[in-house]
């Protein structure tokens, strides 16, 4: 069993890592990571705007975003993937690669989730920060830019990291529309071998496990640091006992 798995990795590691890259589109693990990183980077500013809209006092801004958030929370990602697969080529009028379709889906989906995280971060800071900043002469945007967001976003770093982990896991759904990611590469390997599906999919599962586990571990470290800094303590000295922590936020929904 282990020998089979080592033999598979030995033969197909390049395909699993970068897909058919020089001779075809980039794929494999590299594509999975690029897709998730890009979607978080694009979703982030979008999510801040959505959070502002949800906190706004104008109904015309608040309601559509609330609907969007509830739709993304209530509809399976698979359904959204199918929607973009159908709508993105229709709207752009071009033959869009499945990578971009998946990217668009993830931006909307994770944007909605991130906006909830950011909104919670802003609300958790309390109204006093905004009032004080306004009293000091900041405009609403100035207060947001210089007072609220720097604090809220800093406190939200752990939740954002766990959103990134969730995004990596969500990219697997690209399989349904043939995005050439890690899952796709593994099923290609499986189609070539045909005889060892368990070994191939176990390698796939373990690869995801290693990546997501290390990112989750990083999240926990960062979270502990931030909790300490918020409590007004410096970096932990050697031999000092760790602070008891509040319940972790290592995953979304």
């Amino acid at each position: 069993m282990i020998h089979d798995m080592i033999a598979i990795i030995d033969e197909y590691w390049l395909l699993l890592l970068i897909g058919q890259y020089p001779n075809g589109p980039l794929g494999g693990l590299a594509n999975t990571l690029i897709l998730s990183a890009l979607s978080i980077v694009i979703a982030f500013p979008f999510a801040i705007l959505l959070a502002f809209a949800r906190l706004s006092s104008y109904r015309a801004l608040r309601w559509p975003v609330t609907v969007l958030v509830y739709v993304t929370r209530g509809v399976p990602l698979l359904m959204l993937v199918l929607w973009s697969y159908f709508l993105v080529p229709l709207l752009t009028g071009a033959d869009v690669p499945s990578f971009l379709t998946m990217l668009a889906t993830l931006v909307v989906y994770q944007g909605a989730f991130l906006s909830e995280i950011i909104r919670a971060g802003i609300v958790a800071l309390g109204q006093g920060q905004m009032d004080a900043a306004r009293a000091l002469g900041h405009s609403w945007f100035g207060a947001m830019r210089y007072v609220i967001l720097p604090q809220a976003l800093y406190n939200m770093i752990p939740s954002m990291l766990s959103t990134f982990v969730a995004t990596i896991k969500d990219t697997t759904l690209g399989y349904v529309i043939n995005v050439p990611d890690l899952t796709f590469a593994a099923s290609q390997v499986n189609n070539q071998l045909l005889t060892q599906p368990f070994q191939v999919f176990l390698i796939l599962a373990l690869t995801y496990y290693v990546i997501c586990w290390s990112l989750t571990a990083l999240t926990n470290v960062v979270e502990r640091r931030i909790t300490r800094r918020r409590a007004g303590l410096g970096p932990r000295r050697r031999g000092e006992i760790a602070l008891p922590l509040t319940p972790k936020v290592t995953e979304q929904l």
């Binding site: 990596i168 697997t172 399989y175 999919f201 796939l204 599962a205 995801y208 496990y209 997501c212």
Partner: peptide, 9 residues
């Protein structure tokens, strides 16, 4: 830490 889809597969 493993995507649900991969677990199903």
């Amino acid at each position: 830490n493993v995507p649900t889809l991969v677990q199903l597969m």
